[in-house]
Structures are given as C-alpha cells and as structure tokens.
Amino acid sequence: MNDRSAFVWMTVGLALLGLASPLSAQRAGMWTFNGQYSTVLPIGDLTRSFTDGFSWRGGTIDVERGATDRLSIGASVGWHLLSEQNATTSLLPDAALSGTALRHVNSVPLLVSGTVTLGSPGRVRPFFGAGGGLVWVENRTEAGPFVLEDTNWHRGAMGEVGVQIPRARSATITIAARYQRASEVNGVEREYVTFSLGYLLGG
C-alpha cells in the first residue's frame, strides 16, 4: 500500500468512525490545543541505516476543531530529532561520506490531521488519528572537518493511537504513539514512531 492510499484509507476510516457516533454539541465547534513532548524511535531500513538510536528529543503540537462530538480536524506540526554516532556511509545524490561520524535527522512534519475520540467525557478515552501533508527533513553528517547536509520536502503521512486522561478543569493528559512517514525523495525515506506525553487544552 503506497502513502496516498494508506492516507486515504485512514482518513475514510476516521470519518466513518466519527460520523457513526451520535452527534452532540458538546465538542463540535470547540478548539483543542495539544502540546506534546515526544520521544522518537527510528524504524525502517533506510532510516535505521542512517541513524538507529532512540531519541529523547522531540515535540509535537496539534490544533484541532471539533467537527462532531467524536471527530475533530485540524493541523499538526512537530520537530523530531534522530541522532547517532556510527561508522557507515552517508549517501547523497551527488556525494558520499564514509567513516565514523555524527549523523542527525531533523524532521518537521506539517500535516492536516483528524482525530476520533471514543468513550465518554470525564473518563479515560482512547483516540485514533491520521494525517497527511508535507515533512521537511534535514539529514546531516559530521565527520572530522567534513559536513554533508541534505534537505528535502517529502510527502508525509501519520497514524496515531492514544488515550486521553482527564484532569482537573478542562485540561487533559494524552499519551500517544504515532507512526510517522516521510516518503522517498532522492533516495531518502524516513520512518519513525513517536511516543508522546501531551497536555491537551479545550474541547
């Protein structure tokens, strides 16, 4: 399944889930803001061959508006960093660098997102999300006096599962795992999973 079809199916699934639930005015029309601290786990051969270390550096912000009681639609922006010192070969379209080096991936996804939240207000609620858009990715290799840097805009997609844990007033804690993909451009493809702890306001 390619990126586009995966994104379409996730979007259709979310829409059906959201529309199948009883409509209510409780969340429809209301804005939510979810600021999340994210850790990053690289997956996929192309990503892991460049940087294969778990990263504690990342952040994600989701801003969405309730379309129905369960379905909200909005935007997601993130900054996710992978970094590792290893001895491999960094390949760019017109250059290569081999040897022990610090290799970094800075990924900034800019996505349109949708989230379906199940369960009842005031209780722990599971949610599912999907999104698509663009991902800016910088791949940087630092070895001795040499630096190779390669930046590209990729088509991107994400799928997410998580839970909302209600807290006092209108704040909610979120815990989520998100699969993030930046599709192939110039031989570079990046895939990773973020594990995020968020603080959700509104909704």
Binding site: G99, H104, G144
Partner: peptide, 19 residues
Amino acid sequence: ACYPGQIEGVDEPDVVLTV
C-alpha cells in the same frame, strides 16, 4: 538541540568524502 554532540565532534581517522 538540533545537532547534539556537535561540540564534542568526531575526530576519528579514516573518513572518506567523495563528490
């Protein structure tokens, strides 16, 4: 934050660059 470890750098020998 974007380039952790940059200050330490890598000073290992045997680096080959081709362009």
